[in-house]
Computed example of a mutant assay.
Amino acid sequence: MSSQPIAILPSLSAAYRLLLANWQRFVLAGLPFTLAYAIKLWLGQMAQSAELTGFWLTLDAVALIALTVGSLAFSAMAFRLAVRGEYDGRFGLRLSADEWRLFVVAMLNAALVLIVALLAAMFAIVVFGTVAAGAVERAGIDAREAGIDLPMAMQYLTTADWVAVGAVNVLALLLVGWLVARLCLSFPASFAQRSVRVLSVWSLSEGQAWRILASIVAALAPLVIVEIGLYEAVCAILGERPLMVPVVLGEDLLTEGGFVRIPEYLRLTGLFAIFNLPVVAGLYAHFHTLRAPASE
């Protein structure tokens, strides 16, 4: 195995070089699934006021299929270019063994991350509930008699309570982030070796997880900040938030705050996937170049 450690700045440089050198290719290849994604978002907004039926329901299903196939083909195109320097097919897009391998690797990774994320979330929820119950009890209120549920109990949390809850959530996020970092080399390895590789390349990221995670955050942060800035400017011009979906919390319908903004911004990043995904592909390919055995 290569003994080269992963350095953050050279990793960022490699990721953005791929994007800047091939941005026109990525835009052309990403237009179909970006259009499908935009249609899905638009239909999602329509569904808030009325249930989709007939033509609109069919369009929603077609858009979902187009989005799934298009995003898979686009991601495979980006990894082929980043790992093997290959660009073939119409706009670099094709349906081949690469796409199927990418799908399998993505599903396996998602399953592993989801299991850990669910366990971490369950622990965080238990801690949150315990802290909230303690806050209500300190206020001299019997939660059962008063009919206080978790959303209502939140108003009794002190600053110290929020700090404790926040610390637990940060630890849970770091655990999930660490796992994502350990698994990320499975993507370029599967393209380099033309075979599904997940846990078999686990050792490639040994001792480098936090460097990998820091590189991923540092690479995506500028893009996300710019994307959010552009979106907020558009919202100010329009006088509305086109990607906002209200969130029900207890008896309240929220349209402000982190419960609403975070999912809204996540939906936004999908519209800019033609830039975000190539940066990730370039970053992962660079990690693999540094850590893979010379024989690969």
Rank of each mutant, 00 (worst) to 15 (best):
G147V: 04
G147A: 13
I148H: 09
D149W: 06
D149H: 12
D149N: 15
L150G: 00
L150H: 02
P151E: 00
M152W: 00
M152P: 01
M152L: 06
Y156C: 02
Y156S: 01
Y156A: 10
L157S: 02
T158A: 03
T158Q: 01
T159P: 03
W162P: 01
W162C: 06
V163I: 15
G166F: 00
G166D: 01
G166S: 03
A167G: 15
V168R: 01
V168Q: 00
N169S: 02
N169M: 06
N169E: 01
N169W: 00
V170Q: 09
V170R: 09
L171F: 05
L171C: 11
L173K: 10
L173E: 14
L173C: 13
L174M: 13
L174K: 10
L174Q: 06
L174V: 14
L175K: 06
L175F: 03
V176H: 08
V176E: 11
V176K: 08
W178V: 10
W178T: 13
W178G: 10
W178Q: 12
L179P: 04
L179V: 09
L179E: 06
L179A: 08
A181G: 02
A181N: 06
R182Q: 12
L183P: 01
L183V: 02
C184R: 12
L185S: 07
L185F: 04
S186G: 15
F187R: 07
F187G: 04
A189E: 06
S190C: 08
F191Y: 13
F191N: 06
A192S: 14
Q193Y: 05
R194I: 05
S195W: 05
V196Q: 07
V196H: 07
V196W: 10
V196G: 08
R197Q: 15
L199K: 04
V201L: 05
W202R: 10
S203R: 15
S203F: 11
L204F: 09
S205F: 10
S205K: 06
E206S: 15
E206P: 06
Q208H: 10
Q208M: 11
Q208W: 07
W210V: 07
I212T: 13
I212D: 11
L213M: 13
L213C: 09
A214R: 03
A219V: 11
A219W: 06
A219T: 13
L220H: 14
L220V: 12
L220E: 14
A221I: 04
P222H: 07
P222Y: 12
P222M: 12
L223M: 11
V224I: 15
I225R: 04
V226S: 10
V226N: 09
I228K: 09
I228P: 01
G229D: 05
E232Y: 12
E232D: 05
A233Q: 03
V234R: 07
C235R: 15
C235N: 14
C235K: 13
A236I: 01
A236Q: 03
A236F: 02
I237T: 03
G239M: 02
G239I: 03
R241D: 02
P242T: 12
P242S: 12
P242I: 11
